[in-house]
Nucleic acid binder design. Sequence first.
DNA 1: ACCCAAATCGGAATCGTTCTGATTTGAGAG
DNA 2: CTCTCAAATCAGAACGATTCCGATTTGGGT
Lengths: 147, 147
Amino acid sequence: MYSVHETTASILQALKEAGYKFTGKRRAVVDLFVENRDRYFSAKEVYDHVSQIYPSVSFDTIYRTLGILVEQNVIEPMEFADDRARYRLQCARGHHHHLVCLRCGASIPIEECPIDRIRQQVPNFHIEDHRLEIYGYCDRCAGGADN
Amino acid sequence: MYSVHETTASILQALKEAGYKFTGKRRAVVDLFVENRDRYFSAKEVYDHVSQIYPSVSFDTIYRTLGILVEQNVIEPMEFADDRARYRLQCARGHHHHLVCLRCGASIPIEECPIDRIRQQVPNFHIEDHRLEIYGYCDRCAGGADN
DNA sequence: ACCCAAATCGGAATCGTTCTGATTTGAGAG
DNA sequence: CTCTCAAATCAGAACGATTCCGATTTGGGT
């Protein structure tokens, strides 16, 4: 069910099986995510990318496509602090969190998740969901060599 | 500097010292937070409260006041998943996170914070900030008895 | 080649938030 | 107590991200 897609083709295949049609615009959106595996993109950034190929594309199409991709577990959304939703190709592994570079947008998965520990500590609270986001600068962006 | 305010009076005093004027509308906003210490309120909810007392209050005033209170460390903002900013009286204790009830908006502080552990695991990533938010339902809202 | 639901378009609508220009008001100085 | 002026406020327009709508186009099965 939650197969992780490695190529644009396998993703488009999955969409087809889910009853969605194949279109050039959808391919353009999927391509962007596949070719930038660890990057988050805002809807605007996706729009800019697609409109280079299809100048007449509308935001409606972008948002609709993003919605489908989220629904199909191809990409995952995240709310950045700047209140624009961003999306990124779904990671291979199960539940985990990320270090997000504030400069280049790279996301680096980490193992640590505190939710089990917390769940034990507060048996009376019915936890439904949680978000852990860690912001900073990756080694490359932190200022050249070491910093 | 980061004194924690226990009363409306001490907050208004702090605002005065920061060069802000005292107005009834500001008092109404501060009152709401002080009288509901562990609750998050959206700008709309604050507006609704203030407009009961001052029917002509505008959103501009609400947002301006919220901005000042955040700047003065009287309240702290949080972005809920429903993409409306919410605010709550600044907590007394140092850094910590909360369980947030999706129904009533109550926020329950917890001790657990995974950031030190994570910092050790990724020495090459320069962590600047992080957010951990846990959503669910408090005992009271979880559906009466148990659910 | 034909058909129809799905996809797309462009533009309007919505929602939370911010800005603008004109008017009012808190509070210090006289 | 009045004068004064920057700060505060107001009403409404503007804004940016996202969604909706009616009309048109198109992928892909028959």
